[in-house]
Amino acid sequence: MVWQGVPEIVCRDATPTEIGTLHGSLAKARIHRAIENYTSLYQETADLTWSEALERASKYVEPLEANVPDLVEEMRAIAVAAEVDFLDILALNHWTADKEDTVFLAQNWDWVGETAEATVFMDIQPQGKPRMQMFGEAGLVGKFGFNDKGLGVCMNAIRAGVVDSTKLPVHLAIRKVLECSSFEEALASINERGLASCITFTVADSTGAMASVECSPRGNVPIQPDHEGTVCHTNHLYAPAQTARVKDHPSANSFSRLTRMQELSKGTAPSFKSIRSRMSDEEGTPVSICRSRPPGAKGMEKMETLSTMIMDLKKGKAELSLGRPSLSPEIRILTMDS
């Protein structure tokens, strides 16, 4: 039977093979369409290709055959009748965009526009240490980036007058983070060496361990991800343990940008596409997430978005673009493969 173009599958007192065969034969075209739909959906929401979805689904075959052999039999019959592979049917029945499958780290780098003429890419591997890829100003030994151990780091400048010259300057500290192999090792490096001034490092590794670490010469405070596994930070301190001992002087737009990013991130699966969309947001322009230079601005208020880096730490891959992401600039793919 068909109602408004939708086929109805009716099967009584039937074996798993009989149910699957009827399902696959009556809905063959719609099964092919479902595979097309989920191929796009997996790519857009989880940056996952269909072949990768099939590979993940294959890991479930043996446990499912032991636990629900009747449903495995039914799915196999659907596949035969619909003339698709069994793993195609299994992948349709197994949504794989759970949070532990992806670990993304990203930031817009806002700074005075003239800095764009003094930037460099760095792909280096010190002896006995991880290979790391960074982007930042020429002459600096460390900036935001990721390494071949699956660890990445971003940074937010904090305006505060607390300084201790016995501890590490910001860019040396971030370099030491990128020489680490895990989040735990990176956090230990930050804590053991200390920071000479205030900064926030957002650090994550491929296992999903992550935090925004508000650093100051008076100590460091990690801000853990929320219940959705997301942590956001802009250019002000907000960990109670840090604000109790350090007075910072942020611009008002730091608070509005943080609130906006938290709103945009709520319930949104991480992917290169979805994160780039958030980084391109211009609500509150010119001092928006995607920032343009305010008219008549002077000094540090001349800041604009100079680059966007989005890192997939599970895959060891990053997308880097120069300029405001809202303008759809060319994207450079960074990997640890070559």
Rank of each mutant, 00 (worst) to 15 (best):
L187G: 00
E179W: 01
E65P: 00
T202Q: 01
R159D: 15
E137T: 13
R12D: 14
V231I: 09
I289E: 09
P16C: 12
F121H: 13
A138T: 06
Y38F: 15
A186V: 00
A81D: 07
E74W: 09
I190F: 00
K129E: 07
R193G: 03
A116S: 15
L105Y: 05
G150K: 04
T115N: 10
R193F: 06
I310R: 01
E263A: 13
D101Y: 05
S182H: 02
T21F: 12
S216M: 06
N108S: 05
A29I: 03
N108M: 13
I190L: 11
Y38K: 12
S265C: 12
M336G: 01
I19T: 08
L54S: 05
R12Y: 14
L168R: 01
D88H: 06
A116W: 03
R291M: 14
Q133H: 11
H236W: 06
E214S: 00
P130R: 01
F272D: 13
A91I: 05
Q4P: 07
S256F: 07
V141W: 04
E304L: 15
P294K: 05
A81W: 08
A34C: 10
H249S: 09
G229V: 06
D337S: 12
V221G: 01
I9M: 10
N253S: 06
Y38A: 08
E137Q: 13
V246M: 06
G194R: 00
